[in-house]
Design a protein around this nucleic acid. Structure first.
Lengths: 108, 108
DNA sequence: TCTTTATTTAAGTATTGACTTAAATAGCAA
DNA sequence: TTGCTATTTAAGTCAATACTTAAATAAAGA
């Protein structure tokens, strides 16, 4: 299992979450375009992008002077896989709860 | 949309992630039982459980002197919903990539 | 009531992390 | 080369947070 806590930590910051969410919807964007959404400095954006890149949530490539960023699906699918696994357990427990409530009702 | 970044922050800590993961698999457990898995102090565990409870990831109830903790499905389904939405976008972009590679191949 | 068990709350410390400004790097164009 | 645009790296500051020990609370039992 990959290190999910690092991915969660990356998405725990509101700026980084908003960046990933926007990249999902709009595809590839430059660091400058991404930065326009926020009132923090350029270097702050660059540092956030570095965190997202280091944790494997975004890819990047050069295009002339610009750095283009896009979502790295593998990074998100690691979370998706864990959630799918977790869902099995919580749905099973909801089923047990529902069953228990039904039995209680039947007794009346 | 609920505050997903708070949920991500809660799961970003390795201890809290392990607690949630174990509660999913084993169901309801007391604070004491949960604490045995870690070498940190009782109060530290209690504080982690408070964070998980405050962010809506776990429920708790009293049972005599003990506090019993279990996963709150709603907390995780908020993440699950975002991932499902995100998946639509990243799969669409993968499809476009695949299409582009196919077109390139056809030209040869 | 007094004691024991289970857990939380309080208070203080140390590390981590998000931000800033200033300086460095990379590529393009005059 | 010199300059211009885009972005990152460096260095330092401040706030958030994960931990500790000590004290408080809650429920049960002798």
């Amino acid at each position: 299992m990959p290190d999910l806590t690092a991915s969660f930590a990356a998405l725990a910051d509101p700026v980084r979450f908003a960046i990933v969410d926007r990249l999902l919807r709009e595809g590839e964007l430059s660091a400058g375009e991404i930065g326009k959404d926020f009132k923090i400095s350029g270097p702050a954006i660059s540092q956030h992008l570095a965190v997202l890149h280091d944790t494997g949530l975004v890819q990047r490539r050069r295009m002339a002077q610009r750095r283009m960023y896009s979502v790295e699906p593998k990074g998100l699918s690691a979370i998706s896989d864990w959630i799918a696994e977790a869902r099995k357990f919580w749905e099973a427990s909801l089923d047990r709860l529902e069953q228990a409530l039904q039995n209680e009702k039947d007794l009346k």
